[in-house]
Design a protein around this nucleic acid. Structure first.
Lengths: 121, 121
DNA sequence: CTTGACAACTTAGAATTCCAAGCGTTCCAT
DNA sequence: ATGGAACGCTTGGAATTCTAAGTTGTCAAG
């Protein structure tokens, strides 16, 4: 699958995956093959696959979840506008991270609470 | 410039450069500082700077020319609405402050945790 | 003066190696 | 039987190293 065209390998993988997403063979909500599997399929190193997934992430086509996988976004909505929603994408990204941080704080607080105030059950 | 928030270093650099481009201190057509210079300024490795520039490239904000440099794209064209950008800047600013607050809460929680759960590590 | 070689600097792509963190399962001991 | 520890798989971030290729400037030889 190396396809020795002049096109960089990671962009070829981006094209491939983007096409599969658009064609519906990777419907929204489904997980992409794991990085290791993609490495094997395309016969490239992990860095190439990571670069490709990174592009798809900044394009908003997929979202990665640590420990689970990379999932096709539910609402692709306005397909890949390079610049128009740059700031909005930025804000959404930061909000995502903030939500994760707050959730993590909540979890830790809950753990502390159940340690300090034993469960009255 | 490391800014020990939870935000990854390469995204912090993306934010910084994007802000400078939008603010006009890096007008269209000008070259960004070289990767080596950015490494020095932000005190990170080349891989981080490369990641940041890669994001800006896929966002279409800059274009790289081998052997010369990375240049701010002419004509961002697609409507950089003045009003919303002000609002968005405001939101981004508040997000920054929130990130700091969350970080501080995390630190205090960590202190509490190590007091309640002694570390036998 | 012109031309060619060369060195220095630049981005781009790729590989490899770590480490951190999250999730899910298994499995064992209390 | 249920709770918790351990393990394996996963993504994410970062550093380092290498190669390729393009630009620019210098400098010496013809």
């Amino acid at each position: 699958m190396v396809e020795k065209t002049g096109r960089p390998a990671y962009l070829q993988i981006v094209d491939e995956l983007r096409a599969q997403i658009r064609a519906g063979s990777l419907p929204p909500g489904t997980a992409l093959p794991s990085i290791a599997q993609l490495c094997e399929r395309f016969e490239v190193s992990a860095s190439v696959v990571k670069s490709a997934i990174s592009v798809l992430r900044t394009e908003g086509l997929v979202v990665g979840q640590q420990g689970k996988g990379v999932f096709v976004r539910e609402a692709p909505a306005s397909t890949v506008e390079p610049e128009p929603s740059g700031i909005n994408a930025e804000i959404l990204d930061q909000l995502t991270q903030m939500r994760a941080s707050v959730k993590e704080l909540g979890d830790r607080l809950a753990a502390l609470e159940s340690a300090v105030f034993p469960k009255p059950k």
